[in-house]
């Protein structure tokens, strides 16, 4: 649910990075953080375990500039990918405006990707959302590794609706901004459709 503030002329949107454990969600945010100028970003917050696994969420606020006199702010969140953190994942999806699914391209993670995608659908439905009606893009991460599943197979298993998709290597940053830009664009297009009011909260 985006937040249009006529008083401060700001628009705030929430993007959630979803995907199986260790697929590179946090790495995506870290790369965005590193490559964004200091005046366009806030502090990146990572609520992580001692072994740097995401425990609750990562958070990165970004200011992208003005559109029609409104400052656009995107709040990027990641969910904890590990299966047993499902309760936390549900909470983070609340009020989401757009979703990025980060798939791990490695062969041995194929099942984990499919399971995580199903989990995303179930958790969204619980909140009254439908994935195919939300701004949604898929990123196939770790394309640089030797043991990857073919794009054809990933596509047929994870992207039956042909949403925008990007190959990426989040550690080097390849595809990271393309993915972010695509989901931000879909969210803004969605806003374009909506009315000025809407007003529904909570």
């Amino acid at each position: 649910m985006s937040f249009i503030n006529y008083a401060s002329r700001e628009i705030n949107c929430k993007i959630v990075y979803y995907g199986p454990g260790l697929c590179g969600k946090t790495t995506n945010l870290q790369f965005v953080y590193q490559k964004t100028s200091p005046d366009a970003k806030g502090k990146m917050i990572s609520l992580a375990t001692e072994t740097e696994r995401t425990l609750f969420f990562d958070f990165l606020p970004l200011a992208l500039g003005e559109i029609r006199g409104f400052k656009t702010r995107f709040h990027l969140y990641t969910v904890p990918g590990q299966v047993f953190y499902d309760a936390s994942r549900k909470l983070i999806l609340k009020g989401v405006d757009g979703v990025v699914f980060v798939a791990d391209s490695q062969e041995e993670r194929l099942d984990a990707n499919i399971e995580s995608m199903e989990n995303l659908k179930v958790n969204l439905e619980e909140q009254g959302y439908q994935l195919d009606k939300l701004p949604f893009v898929i990123q196939y991460n770790k394309r640089d590794l030797p043991n990857v599943t073919s794009m054809e197979e990933l596509r047929s298993l994870l992207n039956p609706n042909n949403v925008p998709e990007y190959e990426a290597c989040a550690t080097t940053g390849e595809g990271v901004f393309e993915t972010l830009k695509a989901v931000a664009k879909l969210i803004l297009m969605e806003l374009k459709k909506g009315g000025a009011g809407g007003g529904a909260m909570g």
Binding site: F70, L188, L191, A196, G197
Partner: peptide, 24 residues
């Protein structure tokens, strides 16, 4: 806000173009 929505007050973003978005 609900009333404005009902009255069909246009969103300030109704007129945005692909270029506006790309410029960001």
């Amino acid at each position: 806000a609900a009333q404005e929505d009902k009255d069909g007050v246009p969103s300030p973003f109704a007129e945005i173009t692909d270029d506006d978005i790309d410029n960001l």
